[in-house]
Amino acid sequence: MRQFKISCLFLLFWACVADFSPELEWEDVQADHEPELNILGILSGDSLVTSFVRVHRTLRVDEAADILMRDTIFGNVVVSYASRFVVRDAEVTVSSGTKDYAFQFMKSVENDERGNLYETYVYKGEDLNPQPGEKWTLSVTTPGGLSATGETMVPPVPQLNKEQLPDSFNINQTMNITWAAQPDNYQLVNVRNYQSYFFNDDYDTEEGKSYDSCGFWQQLAVSPGDTAWTYRRDICEETVSIGETNDYETEDFLLINLMSMDRNYHNYFLKYGGDGEDEEFSSLFLGQGGSGRSFGIQGGIGIFGSIGFDRHYLPITR
């Protein structure tokens, strides 16, 4: 009995004075990952959208995303950061099966209206013209030994039934937009008013109140075989203007854009990305992540897809 009491007292004392909270033991994360190529390749049959291939690579856990660069320009030291993701010395070849097209690395591309073609590979010639139904392939190799290939089937050119559209669009109108069916391909319809790009699009309908034009901006994902959409501008928000009403009127146009895409493009950007995105991984400490999907790419991750466009615009009337 005495031994029991002494043992308990000792244990109580020990438990009270000792610090048993284990200290965190930090260790470096060792990941058995060899970098691989991460490709974004888009073939476009449209004259306004340039075909391009972005060649990036994955980074190991111990690699920084940016490389510190020091340049001397006109005697001044200029510090900048270059992305380590970008592969600048790859050999990129896109092939139709009968002809190969060598893509060149460009830091930036002239006449790039949206400014999204920088540090990318483009074809400088004029004869790149993918046609619907053609199978195109991609080959990427790097001096470091990384390589990847890709394949895409060019979708049919989308066709809006423009003759069935009205001559103009009234802001309170309901309009049927129709197009030619593509039984094997997804499409995407985007509608937006031109003046919204300049934030110059108040639509006053009542004195003292202005309505946001956001209701023009709408998008519809089109399943294979679908051919019609009833479009109507939404009233998104009502705001009360204090002071003078804005009676400024500017000519405006309703832009309708119909885009066709191959299965790779649809899977990467729509089915598993964008609004349909379903993050594969989420962690309190690491945030969100993914295993790196690939559609149309072998030997690496990313996407090699092809798209087509048809466009129309209508004057907007009030």
Binding site: V29, A31, D32, H33, P35, N38, L40, I42, L48, V49, R54, H56, T58, L59, R60, V61, E63, A65, F85, E113, R114, N116, L188, N190, V191, R192, Y194, Y197, W217, Q219, L255, I256, N257, M259, Y268, F269, G273, G274, E280, F281, L286, G287, Q288, G289, G290, S291, G292, I301, G302, I303, I307, R311
Partner: peptide, 28 residues
């Protein structure tokens, strides 16, 4: 976690589409 990669993102617009990448965690 294995590393990092850029996840490609598409912005579909009536005028001109846009593609970009954002850094994402690469996991096994």
């Amino acid at each position: 976690p294995l590393g990092r990669y850029e996840k490609w993102n598409a912005s579909h617009d009536a005028y001109m589409p846009d593609w970009s990448g954002y850094e994402n965690l690469l996991v096994g």
